[in-house]
Design a binder for these strands. Structure first.
Lengths: 179, 179
DNA sequence: ACCTGAACACCGTTCAAGT
DNA sequence: ACCTGAACACCGTTCAAGT
């Protein structure tokens, strides 16, 4: 008999993410997650006492936390690099997008937002300008990635569309407006 | 006995929307919707044969369809007016946002997207520029409204924040980038 | 401490039956 | 044509019990 690895919170999150990436958010159930972990569904509650709610919060935190890394390049270049990296990460885990965009989870996006505001302030913006800029950039990013995911899934648009080019072009417009 | 109005598709949609606005998307169930309509849940299937899936599609179509109205002002002003109107509409039915942002529903946003592209082409942009511009603007709008709804619900930020001002400021940045 | 089994209150949906 | 009642296969979760 193959010994299965011990059940840990980390393994639960990773397995859940794997399940979502493979089958979609709608098919993530406690019972199915239990099956994937080779355990009864109820065992999960021992590691996540607040059940599915807590599981989803953990998934959001895992995928959405993506602050701007430290660096000393031009602000505009740093923001552009960060944005492309974040887009890649979100597209890797498209199934979690609905949670990130709509669930209230103050913590998850807070670190990201604040790192954006810090960068903008360092670049000479006022507090208020930095707040608006961070909100604008993050809103553009989440919104366009959500649209891209939607349209890719619908497959009503030609598949050879240069999504990254479109993203970069729109991003340049946004960056011009804020940074 | 109060005669109840006949069950129609329209009345189902409106009641569902009322239920979502009041109690949230999570509490929209066929059984509860039936209760609100003073009818057994199964009666709904007679008007919406594809069940809940079809109901959600109808809700998206109802709320998300919001093309730019005809007019002959400056393109930038028309886009700004449209954006503020759309934001108001989405905030009125915040509970439907998760569906609009994440469900694949080609039709619902198509009319809106095309009206944006038309306006931008009329304003002298190339086909490609118009496509990117429409995508950027719609992405910004959906993303920031989703963020706003999230943060308002979380109530972790002070409530006197000038959300509309922030939206307008970010919008100006985006419009500068595309129009 | 960690996991299981049975049970409870919910879902969406099908299908035969009523009017 | 329009609606109901009973039933089915699923949910998330609680709780006592096992080791």
């Amino acid at each position: 008999m193959s010994q299965r690895p011990p059940l840990t919170r980390e393994r639960i999150i990773e397995t859940a993410l794997h399940l979502i990436d493979g089958q979609g958010l709608g098919r993530l159930t406690m019972r199915r997650l239990g099956d994937s972990l080779e355990v009864e569904a109820m065992a999960i509650y021992h590691h996540l006492p607040h059940g599915k709610e807590q599981l989803l919060e953990q998934l959001i935190a895992y995928v959405a936390a993506h602050p701007v890394p430290p660096g000393n390049g031009a602000p505009r270049d740093r923001l552009r690099d960060w944005a492309h990296g974040y887009r890649d990460r979100l597209l890797e885990h498209v199934g979690v997008m609905p949670l990130i965009v709509t669930r209230r989870n103050p913590g998850a996006l807070l670190a990201t937002t604040q790192s954006l505001e810090d960068l903008l302030r360092t670049a000479g913006r006022t507090e208020a300008q930095a707040a608006v800029g961070a909100h604008t950039l993050l809103g553009y990013l989440l919104g366009t990635v959500a649209l891209e995911a939607r349209e890719r899934a619908a497959e009503t648009t030609p598949d050879d569309l240069d999504w990254e080019g479109r993203f970069r072009a729109g991003l340049d417009g946004v960056l011009t407006g804020i940074a």
